[in-house]
Design a protein around this nucleic acid. Structure first.
Length: 519
RNA sequence: GGAGCGUUGGUCAAGGGGUUAAGACACCUCCCUUUCACGGAGGAAUCACGGGUUCGAUUCCCGUACGCUCUACCA
């Protein structure tokens, strides 16, 4: 369809009219490190929001106090900052709908649950955890639903006076949604199209816990409403519980106000099937979290993409291509390009297996693409960590330019560029020894003599090197490898004469002499 | 078990009633490079299965299989 087609032109206006401001949210619970799947959910939310000039909100869903992990929340924000996916509103960034932490919003939720009870759409349930546990053992596939709720300890089964008495006595209770029997619940998922459920298949989920905290089901709906969320994107694992949320919207705020849903495909483990987990990374030797994370409860460390030597641009780029593509052949995208081209319609329905090799390829591409000046602040500390002494930044920048096309991870700069800062301690003499002879020895001795008076640039050096070789009856080619080993220590690196030019006369001379002593 | 969702090479994937079924990663061969990479040129490799509909299905419909997710006072 041509771009100037009237239908295409009108579409955005219709959307704009019906949707007012685009507002999306990422709603993690602070229970651990942010893994690939989480960051990709953030990314798709972010891209969609920015493309539509909307807001990206981060709301902390910490309604389960038993699973709270210290440091997890800060880690989430650090990850977002590293990725360049900054929220417009959050615990950290503030905003007009604060607080953005659900534990601090606790008093808000009860009234909605109570309202539903008044309307007969929810009820009090007094069953203890043990009682339910016993039920589940007794009845296979037990569900708290229309079939069994009359036999259980709740305000539907009990008369009003008994219920009131239990409450007055301080008996702990939860509020459960009363799922209607045999009602079709249909909604349109932006990725999957029309999805339908029968209400009988969903059980009476707890809305408000005994401690007064809402469960996820109540909290998302209430907060999405209060925070004026226009589009709700989350992982596919939420699809089966969406009928609860739809019903809650219908009961509480009306379906017209409900955000548009999109359930994102999962990121799968590389071998076999199933959701990618930290375990898979440990097992297969690649990171799963964005950054290093140590679980404070177990002290178990997990390596992150950042510490593994990934560029945030590459990490984000790689994630975007897992489940989405532009339809064009382009694979390398900057964040602004992704914002411009992202479209929900092109998000895959099926899960994608994570491929670490391809992830590394994205990183190599980004290392090649970025100018040395931009790489410098990332590479320099890695070189210093490796024990190298760095005199000046200009030199490092030139070195980066010379070797970056052979680096896949940032750490590769240590091996690829280390010899620019430190003479090889153990040159690979075995590589030259077998063919070493008096003629070669003579050549290098002579060359050492003329070196100080040589014009110091790669071209001149190469010319002189070859001229001298010919003069002494040597094949220049046979001298290149020994020369490389002397300067680099091994069979790798950029063109020898580029290296020599960078190192300078003094270093080149001393490295030749050092290696010759070992032969 | 139930429900929902999914299924194009080993992986990411384009495509979509008639095509030699794009491209990328990985793999293999060659070229470039007297190193290692980068780069370039080639190669091998795919529509889960069975029925329909159709002149013609990888594409549409229905089944089947397989996989995944959910089935907590967790998110």
């Amino acid at each position: 369809m041509p771009y100037d087609s009237p239908i295409v032109c009108i579409l955005p206006y219709i959307c704009a009219m019906e949707n007012k401001k685009v507002r999306v949210r990422f709603a993690p619970s602070p229970t651990g490190g942010l893994h690939l799947g989480g960051v990709r959910t953030v990314l798709f939310n972010y891209l969609f929001a920015k493309q539509h000039g909307g807001d990206f909100i981060v709301r902390i869903e910490d309604t389960d106090q038993t699973r709270f992990v210290a440091g997890a929340e800060a880690y989430i924000f650090d990850t977002l900052a590293w990725c360049g996916l900054q929220p417009d509103e959050s615990v950290l960034h503030g905003g007009p709908y604060a607080p953005y932490r659900q534990s601090e919003r606790k008093p808000l939720y009860r009234q909605y649950a109570e309202q539903l009870v008044q309307q007969g759409l929810a009820y009090y349930a007094f069953d203890t955890a043990d009682a339910l546990e016993a039920k589940r053992k007794e009845i296979p596939n037990f569900q708290y639903n229309h079939q069994y709720r009359n036999q259980l300890h709740n305000s539907v089964a009990l008369d009003a006076a008994t219920t009131q008495q239990l409450i007055d006595n301080g008996t702990p209770y939860v509020i459960r949604i009363l799922m209607p029997e045999n009602e079709e619940i249909v909604f349109t998922d932006l990725i999957r199209g029309e999805v339908r459920f029968n209400s009988s298949q969903v059980d009476d989920k707890v809305l408000l816990k005994a401690d007064g905290m809402p469960t996820y089901h109540l909290a998302v709906v209430v907060d999405d409403y209060l925070m004026k969320i226009s589009h709700a994107f989350r992982g596919e694992e939420w699809l089966p519980s969406s009928p609860i949320h739809i019903l809650l919207w219908k009961y509480l705020f009306g379906l017209e106000a409900m955000p548009k849903w999109a359930h994102l495909p999962l990121i799968l483990k590389p071998d076999g099937n199933g959701k990618l987990s930290k375990r898979d990374g440990d097992r297969l030797g690649f990171p799963v979290f964005a950054m290093d994370w140590t679980d404070p409860r177990t002290n178990e460390p997990a390596i992150g993409f950042r510490e593994r030597g990934f560029l945030p641009q590459a990490f984000v780029n790689m994630l975007a291509m897992l489940g989405w593509n532009s339809g064009q052949e382009q694979e390398i995208f900057s964040l602004p390009e992704l914002i411009a081209q992202f479209s929900l319609e092109r998000v895959h329905k099926g899960g994608a297996k994570f491929d670490y090799e391809k992830a590394k390829w994205f990183n190599a591409e980004w290392i090649k693409k970025l100018p040395a000046a931009e790489l410098l602040p990332l590479v320099k500390p890695i070189l210093i960590d490796a024990g190298l002494t760095i005199a000046n930044d200009d030199y490092v920048e030139k070195v980066i330019d010379l070797v970056k096309e052979r680096c896949t991870l940032l750490q590769d700069f240590v091996t690829q560029a280390g010899f620019f800062f430190q003479a090889p301690t153990q040159p690979d003499t075995a590589a030259i020894q077998p063919k070493w002879d008096a003629k070669k020895q003579a050549f290098f001795e002579q060359w050492l003599a003329v070196l100080p008076s040589t014009e110091w640039n790669a071209e001149a050096l190469e010319q002189q090197f070859k001229a001298l070789a010919t003069e002494l009856g040597c094949k220049p080619g046979e001298l290149m490898l020994p020369f490389r080993i002397m300067l680099v220590g091994g069979k790798f690196g950029p063109h020898v004469f580029d290296i020599a030019a960078m190192l300078g006369s003094e270093a080149v001379s001393s490295r030749i002499q050092n290696t010759m002593q070992l032969l």
